[in-house]
Design a protein around this nucleic acid. Structure first.
Lengths: 156, 156
DNA sequence: ATAATAATAGTCAATATTGGTCAAAGTTGA
DNA sequence: TCAACTTTGACCAATATTGACTATTATTAT
């Protein structure tokens, strides 16, 4: 597809490993060397692609024997997932983060493709931009998403 | 056919590729250079000729490794009712009339119960009331509904 | 023990690399 | 002529890359 930038390639590499294992532990400098990038780029990749809304938990330790550990969020049931996502949405959510939430819903089989597309249509910035106020737009997007998430939560 | 203007030529070029592939991924500047036009003309071509009602989905990413992706989607055979509903929605629609639209969708088997409920959650007045402006709320509800209705044109 | 040093990872801001928007100006055809 | 469509470019926004500086932890020397 479109892995034309190194961050996407690193993301893919890490998620490939995570598709088999529950978690991975990396040495930041090793990954950086492997892909010929500066170490802080690893932080960038993690910060932009391994967030809670994405379904990942990250912890790390500095100093000798330091590491970065990435784990898939272990959610017990659908209610658990929905609660986590509702919390992640909060009072404001951007167009991009909204998409991430819907992607996670889909990945966890809480919605199918058609349902996901309906939700994406609803929270699309092209629909909500008419307010001409980013803050209000993100607030409105949050209300809509939470309304839907709550519905999914309580529907039978 | 004589494509007198460059926009038509670019459109033809892209659709030629799309007749073979499910989707294409382009670098805006590359296409612009290839046809000796300014980059924003590519946006113009896409906006006027690769619309959702025409059966195209467009997504893009900025920054390093950025791209514009155009995908061709199959459209439902009989979409008259969707056109009618889109017209009925117009620029503003009330909470109550919005519900009626969704009911019509359900009655015509364009959405099932779960999908209908998701849409209802999205356009509920409790989600949109935060604007504290009835006119803006009805305008926003119209945008959301039309965005969804356009996506319902897609087969599968 | 304590201090110095080495080995990690984190933060942040500058820069680079894309695509997006909008309105002015140009073109065309009824 | 006039309205719709096309072309252009200045300015904007998002994302990625880099590196200098900082923070934390472990190991070693005194």
């Amino acid at each position: 597809m479109h892995e034309k930038n190194i961050s996407d390639i690193i993301e893919k590499y890490l998620k490939q490993i995570l598709s088999n294992d529950e978690h991975i532990e990396i040495r930041r400098s090793e990954i950086a060397n492997h892909f010929h990038v500066v170490p802080s780029q690893i932080n960038y990749v993690i910060k932009t692609r391994f967030t809670i809304p994405n379904g990942y938990l990250v912890e790390s330790k500095r100093g000798g024997g330091g590491y970065i550990k990435i784990a898939k969020v272990k959610l017990l049931d659908n209610i658990d997932i929905l609660d986590t996502l509702i919390e992640a949405v909060g009072n404001h959510i951007s167009n991009k983060d909204g998409k991430t939430i819907v992607q996670t819903l889909f990945n966890n089989h809480l919605v199918n493709r058609k349902e996901a597309n309906i939700i994406l249509s609803a929270i699309d910035k092209r629909s909500l931009c008419i307010m001409n106020n980013k803050q209000l737009e993100d607030q409105c997007r949050s209300r809509i998403l939470i309304s839907i998430l709550n519905h999914l939560r309580f529907a039978d």
